[in-house]
């Protein structure tokens, strides 16, 4: 159980660091989506199913979609 949590936290932090370094904004958005998704699993493990549901549907789905739409309207690469 605690090793599962440690593994999830490691992957989450790695995805956040990847979101920091990516020059391609689309990849950065997908990395932040992974952060939200794993955070939702951790919310569930912390016995907060309401918050896990909100984070999965809003943070991982809607926010990613909104960011991708904005990137389509402005430009994909960070120069």
């Amino acid at each position: 159980m605690i090793f599962l949590v440690a593994f999830l936290v490691l992957v989450m932090l790695a995805a956040a660091i990847a979101a920091f370094f990516f020059r391609d904004l689309l990849s950065a958005v997908i990395a932040s989506c992974i952060v939200s998704l794993i955070a939702s699993i951790i919310f569930f493990l912390l016995q907060a199913p309401d918050v896990a549901m909100a984070e999965a549907s809003i943070g991982a789905a809607l926010l990613t979609a909104i960011l991708i739409i904005a990137i389509r309207r402005t430009g994909r690469y960070e120069e």
Binding site: A19, V29, V35, A39, L67, T74
Partner: peptide, 21 residues
């Protein structure tokens, strides 16, 4: 540290997830 505005917004969302956690 980043210079691109969309990157800043991604950073805000990551920070917000951390605070909620």
């Amino acid at each position: 540290l980043r210079h691109h505005l969309i990157k800043l917004i991604i950073g805000l969302s990551i920070m917000e997830t951390g605070i909620n956690l």
